[in-house]
Design a protein around this nucleic acid. Structure first.
Lengths: 229, 229
DNA sequence: CGTGATCTTGAGGGAATTCAATGTCGGTGG
DNA sequence: CCACCGACATTGAATTCCCTCAAGATCACG
């Protein structure tokens, strides 16, 4: 049970400083509508991007930094639903209201687009509509994989997390973690102690190497893949 | 660890006995395209509707009976992703291939529609496209809720399951379960023994009443809701 | 160099699993 | 009709894995 210390980001109902609302060029426009139509907004570390139960008025795309989406359960525990990094679109959990909250883990730049604007485009352009559908379907797959993760053993969860991060943000087998142990624990449905112990154990068995607690080198990928089985 | 005994249903690449492929009437057609365009096929108890890794060529809607979707993990455990009853649409886990398998728990009637046909309609009719998107979004929400369930205690999981089933299929506070304890356990990420013990405990505390192991009366809904918290 | 936040490590306890045995139900054939 | 059978479910005892509680260690930053 830990504190919830996010700071509310400046509302962006006020005109953003660097709006770049371009009209959507017709033609093959589906790929990155959010880039074209979105407004890039900076979020400082630990500020809220949106809150659970707020109307889901916008869709978001990470330009830089890391975002966590999470839900605080009635018993006070926090479940992190996802870590989003550069290129990830998030915020379409539901149609009416967000079911999760979102916070910047690091300083971030996030492209924001009004859902209604997107729907308007989707109504005209079927390719956009299908692209949005595809994004939702992919998100569905991601959550299903995450669900399967939560019934695994602690070691399997940690290993899967490392491999997942490695795939997304590794540079020559090294992962620079932007989130705390607590974030990882809340993502994996474990305690911070169990995460720590598991990492120590993986280091002792020479599967990984940890320096400074945030930098992790995957020493023995095949061993990890085996543990992941 | 239990056996996987589903029988392969007769392939429906052969012409179905009772095809009723109606042309889609234009106008407000989004609501039940699958009903209008689908082909109803019967599935016997414990037969496979589709298998994991098969091309996701069809979408499905339960007309009668109960369906389970599941995935068998490498260690042999089975995770049930969902129970689908009358009215539920399922089979859109992904775009290319099914990530889960589906089996009839009871004898079922299931409306089947070719995904490509649906896409063709969606390309013409934006309302249909948005309806499909909305269905996917709802499925996403359901899976997220299921994910949150898996980090709860055994008692909370069982209670949540009972309340969920009550909401969907209860008749005057009585739930007629169509699935086995093993199915429930695999849905909740528990063992069959834990599910059994929890139900016994709930019965002893007068929250529920069990007769014949498949009929469950919710005696004290508010107590259950409290346990659910 | 001190201070708070973050992380690690240890000891003990508890919830759920595993292993094993018994009990119940529905169907089938004598 | 009832006895038997197999599938399904319950119950008990021992174990395991992870959590809780508690104490240090390390890191970032003024």
């Amino acid at each position: 049970m830990h504190m919830h210390t996010a700071i509310r980001a400046a509302s962006f109902t006020q005109p953003p400083t660097q709006a770049k609302n371009l009209p959507l060029s017709n033609g093959r426009a589906s790929a990155d509508v959010i880039d074209l139509m979105g407004t890039v907004i900076p979020f400082a570390r630990n500020t809220e991007v949106y809150g659970e139960n707020e109307p889901a008025e916008y869709l978001y795309k990470v330009i830089s930094g890391t975002v966590r989406t999470y839900k605080v359960l009635v018993d006070g525990r926090r479940q992190i639903g996802a870590f989003h990094v550069c290129g990830d679109v998030f915020g379409f959990e539901t149609d009416a209201e967000h079911t999760f909250s979102a916070e910047a883990i690091t300083d971030c730049k996030i492209a924001v687009i009004k859902r209604s604007a997107l729907m308007a485009v989707a109504a005209r352009d079927n390719e956009v509509a299908r692209h949005m559908w595809a994004l939702t379907a992919r998100e569905l797959q991601r959550v299903q994989a995450h669900m399967l993760l939560l019934i695994q053993s602690a070691q399997e969860r940690v290993v899967t997390f490392l491999l997942e991060m490695a795939e997304r943000v590794s540079v020559r087998g090294t992962v620079e973690l932007t989130m705390t142990r607590q974030d990882i624990a809340d993502y994996l449905g474990l305690t911070i102690e169990t995460v720590s112990r598991t990492l120590t154990h993986l280091e002792k068995t020479a599967a990984i190497e940890v320096s400074g607690s945030r930098r992790i080198v995957l020493r023995n990928q095949s061993a990890l893949n085996r543990l992941n089985a």
